[in-house]
Design a protein around this nucleic acid. Structure first.
Lengths: 218, 218
DNA sequence: TGCATTTCTAACCAGTTAGTTGGATTGGTT
DNA sequence: AACCAATCCAACTAACTGGTTAGAAATGCA
C-alpha cells in the first residue's frame, strides 16, 4: 500500500534534486555555461557534488535541465493568458502585455537563453519540450491576426512569425542589454517609471503596426 | 631621421598586436569571456602568450580592448550615414536601414555585447569611448523627430531613447537569438530571403510607429 | 662594432576544474 | 532484526587555466 510521502525534509531525493536545480539556475544565469562552477552549485544547493552528478549526469545535462525548467516557466505564464471573448485589438494588447511582463519578471531565463545562443542552441535543439512549446502561441497569434483582418481593424499581410519575434525583441533586448544600453542612453532603464514607459512604448508600436491602414511613403 | 617602416613582416610589434586583437575577437565572440582560452588566442594569432600579456596586460584588459575595437567599428558605420537633405521620413528610414545592416554584418559584436552584459557591463562602464559614442546619434535622431513633427509627418511625443532602443532591438534580438528562435518558429531566419523580409518588417514597424496619427483604442 | 632595447620563445607554476571513487548512513520492507 | 537499495559525503585525480620567468634573437643607435 503506497503510503503518502511525509517529507521529513531530511534525505529526500526530490527536494535535493530541486535544490540542485535551483542553485544551478542561479549559477548558470549569473555566469553563463562556461563561467558557472559545478562546485559552487553543489555547495549552494546544500547537497554534495556527487548528488549532482548522480541526478543529472554532467554539467551539460544539468544545463539542459535548467534551461527546460526555466523555459517551462515561461510557457506556463503564456498558457495562463486567456484571449477568448476579447476583440482582436484587446487580444493583441493582452498578448503583448503578458509577453512584456513575463520577460521582465524572468531575467534569469533571458540570461540562460543568451548562454544557450552563445552555444548555438545545441541543448535547446535536442529538447522536444522546447521544440513544441510555442506552437499553441503561434496558432493563437495567427487567429488573432486573421480575426482582426476580418473585423477590419488590422491590415492584411502581417507575418505572425515576425510579429511575435518583434514583440519578444522589444522587451527581451531591453532587459538583456540594459547594462550596456544604460551607458549610452544615460538613464536607469530598469526603474519602475522607465519600465512602465517602455511597456507603453512597446504596446503602442505593436498595435500601431497592425492597425495603421495608410500606405507608407518610400 | 625616422625611416619609414618597411614591415618585412618579421618582428613587427604593431602587426603582432593587431593579430592578437583579431584572434581574441574571434575567440571571445565565439566562446564568451569565461569560455575563451588565452592559450588559443595566442597560438591562433601566431604570436606567443607572453606577447599577449606584454601588449594587453591580462585577459580582462584584452577583452576590453576587443570590445572597444568592435564597438568602434559600429560607430564608424553609423558616422558614415548622411542624413542631410533627406525628408524626416527618409532620414528615419535611412537610420533604421543602416542600423539593421550594421548589426546583421557584425554578429561578433553582438556576441561580445552579450558577454559584456552577462558581466553587467563592467568593462564598458570604464570606457570613455563607449560612454560618448552614441551621443551624436541620439542628437541626430532627436532632430529628425522634431523636424518630422514640424513638417507634420510624425506625431509628437515620441521618446528618441525608446525609439532607438526599439530600432536596435528589432534586429539585434533577431540575430543574437536566431539559434533558439529558429527552433520555435521552424524557419531559417538567417537566409537572404528571410533577412530581407525581416528588414522590411522592422522598417515598416518603425515608420508606422512614427507616422500613424490615429489615436489608439484601449 | 658594441650595447641597450624591443620583440619574441619555450618551459614552467600554482591554483582551479569537471568528474570519480569508495565507503558511510538512512529508511523502507520483510 | 536483518537486509538492501537509495541517499549522501569527503577526499581524490588528471587535465587544464591564467599568468610568469629566464633567456634568446633581432633591431636601432652611438
Amino acid at each position: 500500500m503506497p503510503v503518502p510521502k511525509t517529507a521529513v525534509a531530511k534525505r529526500d531525493a526530490e527536494v535535493t534534486r530541486k535544490n540542485i536545480l535551483e542553485a544551478a539556475t542561479i549559477e548558470f544565469s549569473e555566469k553563463g555555461f562556461a563561467g558557472a562552477r559545478v562546485d559552487l552549485i553543489a555547495s549552494r544547493s546544500g547537497a554534495n557534488k556527487n548528488m549532482l552528478y548522480h541526478y543529472f549526469g554532467n554539467k551539460e545535462a544539468l544545463f539542459t535541465a535548467v534551461l527546460e525548467n526555466a523555459y517551462g516557466g515561461l510557457r506556463a505564464r503564456q498558457r495562463a493568458v486567456k484571449l477568448g471573448g476579447l476583440s482582436p485589438e484587446d487580444a493583441l494588447h493582452e498578448l503583448g502585455s503578458a509577453t512584456f511582463d513575463a520577460f521582465v519578471e524572468m531575467p534569469h531565463l533571458i540570461r540562460l537563453l543568451n548562454s544557450e545562443n552563445l552555444l548555438n542552441g545545441v541543448h535547446a535543439k535536442q529538447s522536444d519540450l522546447i521544440n513544441e512549446m510555442y506552437d499553441p502561441l503561434f496558432a493563437a497569434l495567427s487567429t488573432v491576426l486573421e480575426d482582426g483582418v476580418k473585423a477590419g481593424c488590422f491590415r492584411p499581410g502581417i507575418d505572425p512569425t515576425n510579429l511575435y519575434i518583434s514583440m519578444a525583441s522589444l522587451v527581451y533586448h531591453y532587459v538583456s542589454n540594459h547594462a550596456t544600453l544604460e551607458i549610452i542612453v544615460k538613464r536607469d532603464l530598469m526603474s519602475d517609471e522607465n519600465l512602465r514607459a517602455r511597456k507603453a512604448h512597446v504596446l503602442e508600436m505593436i498595435l500601431r503596426f497592425c492597425t495603421s491602414k495608410s500606405s507608407l511613403a518610400s
